[in-house]
């Protein structure tokens, strides 16, 4: 068998390093899910601030969202990891990863949520006011529940995006799947095989997550809330 084809024999390496790879995978899942949850909460608050806040608050939320979305995630991680220590803020790579991905994801989720808030029609506000609801009651009981429904597809997409993009934590050395891969490769020098394994693991988890999420979305669908997918 040629050397070229032999490079695709990866089962051996996969089995030998299964434990290390799974450790990385667990961290990847943790990072993605935690960032997703806190990013969603912060993102919804940002969207509310932008749509319903005072002029100053709205401007601040907009600035945050646009700046985060306009700069690379890696630059944001670097600022947290390298630029803060001179000011006495020393965060571990793991903390930076959780913080960075949460802050980043929040901006994107805020943007999706804002889109959904704007999709809630004027008639819904009028109807709420006509029942005697205050502005806040209207937002909490009428606008937000609908906006959240519209946002679900974007949010689930965001989870898949996070599963992939958390690999960037590799650059600052947080122990995710890719970092573990590098660790293995730097010992056995089988770069192609190891990274191929890592790529395949990502392929499997991303496709599986997409399928699972599709099923869940179908289950919780409410009539009248058609889904549009956001891409990032």
């Amino acid at each position: 068998m040629s050397e070229f084809l032999r490079q695709f024999m990866i089962v051996d390496i996969f089995v030998t390093n299964f434990g290390t790879l799974m450790q990385g995978l667990v961290f990847t899942f943790e990072l993605a899910i935690v960032s997703m949850v806190f990013g969603t909460i912060f993102g919804v608050l940002l969207a509310l601030g932008r749509s319903f806040g005072t002029r100053l608050l709205s401007w601040l939320c907009t600035a945050y969202i646009e700046i985060i979305r306009g700069t690379p995630l890696l630059a944001q991680l670097f600022i947290l990891y390298f630029a803060l220590p001179p000011y006495g803020i020393r965060l571990s790579a793991i903390t930076v990863a959780f913080l960075g991905f949460t802050l980043n994801s929040a901006a994107y989720q805020a943007e999706y949520t804002r889109g959904s808030i704007e999709a809630v029609g004027e008639d819904q506000y009028m109807a709420a006011y006509s029942l005697g609801m205050s502005s806040w009651q209207t937002i909490i009981y009428v606008v937000l529940p609908q906006a959240i429904r519209w946002s679900i597809p974007a949010w689930t997409n965001e989870l898949i995006y996070l599963l992939k993009s958390t690999s960037i934590a590799y650059v600052i050395g947080a122990p995710d799947l890719l970092t573990q891969g590098k660790f293995i490769a730097s010992r056995n020098y089988q770069f192609f095989r190891v990274y191929l394994i890592v790529a395949l693991i990502y392929l499997v988890i991303v496709l599986a997550a997409a399928r699972l999420i599709g099923k869940i979305e179908k289950k919780i669908e409410i009539p009248g809330f058609g889904y549009t997918k956001n891409q990032r």
Binding site: E3, K164, G181, K182, A185, F192, V198, V206, L207
Partner: peptide, 24 residues
């Protein structure tokens, strides 16, 4: 389409840069 949408950019980068030399 599936592969290149599912595998993270950074993994692709490392695979191409560090991995491809292994297959010439």
């Amino acid at each position: 389409d599936r592969i290149f949408r599912s595998v993270p950019e950074l993994v692709l980068l490392l695979l191409v840069f560090y991995g491809l030399p292994n297959i010439g």
